[in-house]
Amino acid sequence: MANIIGSPERYVQGRGILGELCKHLQNIGKAPFILVSESGKGRVKEPIEKSAKEYNTKLSFEIFQGECSRNEIDRLVNVYKESGCDVVVGIGGGKIHDTAKALAYYAEAPVVIVPTIAGTDAPCSALSVIYTDDGAFEDYLFLPKNPNIVLVDTEVISSAPARLLVSGMGDALATYFEARACMQSNSPNFIGGYYTITSMAIARLCYDTLLANGIQALVSAQAKVCTKALENIVEANTYLSGIGFESCGIAAAHAIHNGFTAIHETHQCYHGEKVAFGTLTQLVLENASPEEFEEVINFCLDVGLPTTLEDLGIHEIKIDEIMKVAELACSPNDTMGNMPLTLTPEIVCDAIIATDRLGHYFKAKRL
């Protein structure tokens, strides 16, 4: 099997770039099918319509129903085929991105991804995470290619709630550690090959950028201003993490996230928040050095990522529920098997409990 790195055909990031959407569409489509939430449409419609007028582009907006599920994808495929459109544009957060990519795949159309938050690494990948209509993890849909264009307006992202940027940092935090685990176990990546030295370097750069710019970017997001630190974190959350995870692979952190979707109380948390706790648990499973673990957990505490089960909404720890999380995380169709260790649900359950206690310990040290 070859060493393969995947990426979108074009990545465009900058202030006010949403107003150039139709300019960037010119080579792939003239009639965009824009998938967006009801609230998101109100925020992005004006600059897009201005761009459409300049480039004589016909727009069709479709409201996303809230879940990247098989039923929603099937519904959208039918609507798209009747619309006369020739390119899919997904504007919003991770579930809209994944739905737009799946829609484009089944409709045999090009796709443009436009994040309005830097909350996940979904925009750049050739992957859609499929959930049930109720929001529980169901499966991964592996796509034959990455998006044609990823268009990131940092002015839009800087005005989004700061918690979403932090969630993106949580998702990005896993990238290097899961890449390292896949390298050690010689596990394949998401695109039918193995890591390259470039993809491993990107994964490491993602982590280094979080440490160097995370706190400053959080402060900028809280003030709703676009600084160089915020620009760097947007790129880390979106591009570096996206290329890093897809081209290197994922392991325990995301598997544990998927397990937590079975506990209703955690549904209040964003994807990256649960992934951050999964990253800490992965480090416990690996028996990471005290220095490394402290660096990661202190970063989480600095920016406000979860370090305890209580932070995830679990106020009463029930061992049978945590064991269910561990069992799902260790299921054959998930990525726990990419760890360079032999792990059982019992071992993972114990590691989750230990991570929770460590989280309380490090929080107490700050009092």
Rank of each mutant, 00 (worst) to 15 (best):
I352S: 02
T307N: 00
H360R: 14
E327K: 13
C349W: 06
D350M: 10
D311Q: 10
N333P: 00
I297Q: 04
C349V: 01
P290G: 03
A354S: 13
N298Y: 11
C300A: 15
V325S: 07
P345Q: 13
G359Y: 09
K318L: 10
I317R: 08
S331H: 15
D356G: 08
F299I: 03
A326F: 12
A351T: 11
T355Q: 10
M323Y: 15
D356P: 08
D350W: 05
N333I: 07
L301V: 07
K318M: 04
T344F: 12
P340K: 05
H315P: 02
V348A: 04
I347P: 01
L343F: 11
D320E: 15
G359H: 08
D320I: 03
K324L: 12
D302R: 10
E346R: 15
G359T: 05
A354E: 15
L305H: 01
I317W: 07
N333R: 14
I314N: 06
I353W: 03
M336W: 02
P340N: 03
P345I: 00
K324N: 12
L305R: 02
L341N: 07
P345S: 10
F293H: 06
I322P: 04
K318Q: 10
G304M: 10
D350H: 13
L312A: 12
G313I: 01
C300D: 11
K318E: 12
M323S: 08
G304C: 09
C330L: 13
P306Q: 07
D311C: 13
N298A: 07
E346C: 08
E310N: 15
N298Q: 13
K363P: 04
C300V: 03
K318F: 05
D320H: 14
M336V: 06
E316P: 02
L341D: 04
E295G: 00
E294F: 00
G304V: 10
F299Q: 00
F299E: 02
K318Y: 06
G304S: 12
K363G: 11
